[in-house]
């Protein structure tokens, strides 16, 4: 549990960070909270020769409302996210999810950008970003581009990020007023990744589901958007049959690994239950 040798860089601008990443190439990795990267380095599963620490770059932190969007700076910590009034008012589901991430110590250090950027299937925020229709701002040697969260995740630890690029902020369209939301996460203990988790954001009209998005955490190599499951409940009052249909549709796209959290069958089974419970709880919260 001792990392290999590496050089440490602490740039003060995004441009400098991008330049370092581009020139140092594959041997360099950006460092945010470090909760994924540092343990992997201690196991020498990751052996970057250069760490580019992003903590001194001004402007990468903070949560702001920009018209119909909320912008979250990549280096905003989970704790800061939880302290944000903007999030509390506009996207409360992120508070619910952040509170289920590890423990206060981790949340003081862990960043939202780091959580979404590295493509760890166990991280909670990516599924939320899919559910909310978020987009990521990537800055690299060839300029700035925006990638939808839905297009970002390609496999476990494989993402759309290109060499030299840094994820600098997240843009989230504010969900409709009166929306209902829930994040149901089954985990073995504080600090554990989800055995299965489901995020739901929906609107109700006349007792029926009007719009719905469902995201799934740690039930595949990437976070999943359960489109068919969401469609299955639109226009329904979330009766038992519709809930079951949604769970089945969600389960159809789940491909979890068997691990100490349980066999594949169990993880899919509870994945379906998380979907049903999240739908019910979200509907109860909707105006």
């Amino acid at each position: 549990m001792i990392p290999g040798p590496f050089s440490y860089h602490r740039p003060t601008t995004v441009a400098d960070a991008v330049k370092l990443l581009s020139t140092l190439g594959d041997d360099a990795r950006p460092l945010a909270g470090g909760h994924s990267l540092v343990p992997m380095m201690k196991l020498r599963l990751a052996t970057p020769e250069h760490l580019i620490d992003l903590h001194d770059i001004a402007g990468l932190k903070g949560v702001t409302r920009d018209g119909n969007n909320v912008l979250i700076g990549a280096m905003t910590t989970q704790h800061e996210l939880l302290a944000s009034e903007v999030i509390a008012k506009s996207i409360p589901v992120l508070h619910e999810a952040a509170l289920l991430i590890a423990d206060p110590q981790v949340r003081y250090r862990g960043t939202v950008g780091g959580n979404v950027a590295n493509g760890d299937p166990g991280n909670d925020m990516p599924a939320l970003m899919l559910t909310l229709g978020a987009a990521y701002r990537l800055e690299g040697p060839n300029g700035v581009r925006k990638v939808a969260a839905a297009d970002y995740y390609q496999g476990a630890y494989f993402t759309a990020i290109e060499a030299g690029e840094i994820l600098t902020s997240i843009s989230i369209p504010v969900p409709a007023a009166g929306h209902g939301h829930a994040y149901e996460k089954l985990k073995r203990k504080v600090g554990d990744y989800a055995t299965a988790a489901a995020a739901v954001v929906l609107t109700m009209s006349g007792g029926k589901v009007e719009t719905c998005a469902i995201g799934l955490t740690n039930l595949s190599e990437t976070p999943l958007l359960a489109d068919a499951a969401a469609k299955a409940v639109i226009g329904t009052s979330l009766d038992a049959a519709s809930l079951k249909k949604a769970a089945a549709a969600a389960q159809a796209i789940m491909a979890p690994a068997a691990d100490a959290r349980g066999p594949v069958e169990y993880r899919k089974h509870v994945g379906g239950i998380m979907v049903m419970r999240a739908l019910q709880r979200a509907a109860a919260k909707a105006a």
Binding site: L186, T195, R261, G262, Y266, R267, H269
Partner: peptide, 8 residues
Amino acid sequence: HDYWRNWA
């Protein structure tokens, strides 16, 4: 008797 074994 962890969760998945109880379920099993």
